[in-house]
């Protein structure tokens, strides 16, 4: 793994092309992320941000180019890498007829992470006990997002892939979430946040990319 003044290289993309059917969602894309960084990826809808995050999580495969996460190929060693990766996606990835708490309990057992941490995060993000015990189905979009975020943040992973975290959330929660991201980076983790607008996170980011047409341009690095 390459050492640099920025620390350990965690993600390295060179000329990565990802085809979604016949459409190049990523086109010969380069991208780097180091440990202890908050990386901000900004770009309009359809510029390839989500595909970039999914590629790093091994959910899609690069047709050409090289993709390394922790020095390994995320598609070939998907299960090993995913133990080190949290993914907060657009979709909630929770079960509608379980309560928030039951959802957290289930994922804690299935994924082998700490339930208390997850509940603590849910509370920190402003979920009342009443909301935690209500069925997921009846929660508002913002409350649902908080439960998904709680499990993503509580997993003890080294790389966090965050897709549009602030959509649907109120100001207070956005601030707590941002704090969570900076804390994580300070603890040596890497946080990659994608957003279509010039997000408040931009101010916290140490590295910034602008994406358009499936290509990432480095705008600022430490």
């Amino acid at each position: 793994m390459t050492e640099s003044p920025n620390g350990r290289l965690v993600v390295r993309l060179r000329g990565a092309t990802v085809m979604l059917d016949r459409f190049p969602a990523l086109a010969r894309c380069d991208f780097d992320a180091y440990e202890s960084e908050v990386v901000f990826v900004q770009g309009p809808n359809g510029s390839g941000k989500t595909t970039l995050l999914r590629l790093l999580g091994g959910l899609v495969e690069a047709m050409s180019g090289s993709v390394l996460v922790f020095g390994r190929d995320p598609k070939a060693e998907a299960r090993a890498i995913r133990r080190e990766v949290s993914y907060l996606a657009h979709s909630y990835q929770m079960y509608e007829d379980l309560s928030g708490r039951e959802n957290l309990e289930f994922f804690a057992v299935a994924a082998g992470c700490d339930l208390d941490d997850a509940i603590e995060w849910a509370q920190r993000l402003g979920l009342a006990t009443r909301d935690l015990d209500a069925r997921f189905r009846v929660l508002s979009a913002g409350q649902r997002k908080k439960i998904s975020a709680a499990i993503a943040l509580s997993r003890r992973t080294e790389l966090l892939l965050i897709d549009e975290p602030h959509a649907l959330l109120d100001q207070a929660t956005k601030a707590i979430l941002d704090l969570g991201f900076t804390e994580a980076a300070r603890a040596g983790k890497t946080v990659i946040v994608a957003s279509h607008e010039l997000d408040r996170i931009s101010a916290l980011a140490t590295r910034r990319y602008r994406m358009s047409n499936g290509f990432a341009t480095l705008v600022e690095s430490p």
Partner: peptide
Amino acid sequence: AIEGENQAQVGLVMMGVNPRGI
């Protein structure tokens, strides 16, 4: 269908949950 709703299955996969257990 349970796993398709909200893409819960993607969550399972991304958390590295044992597919044999699933």
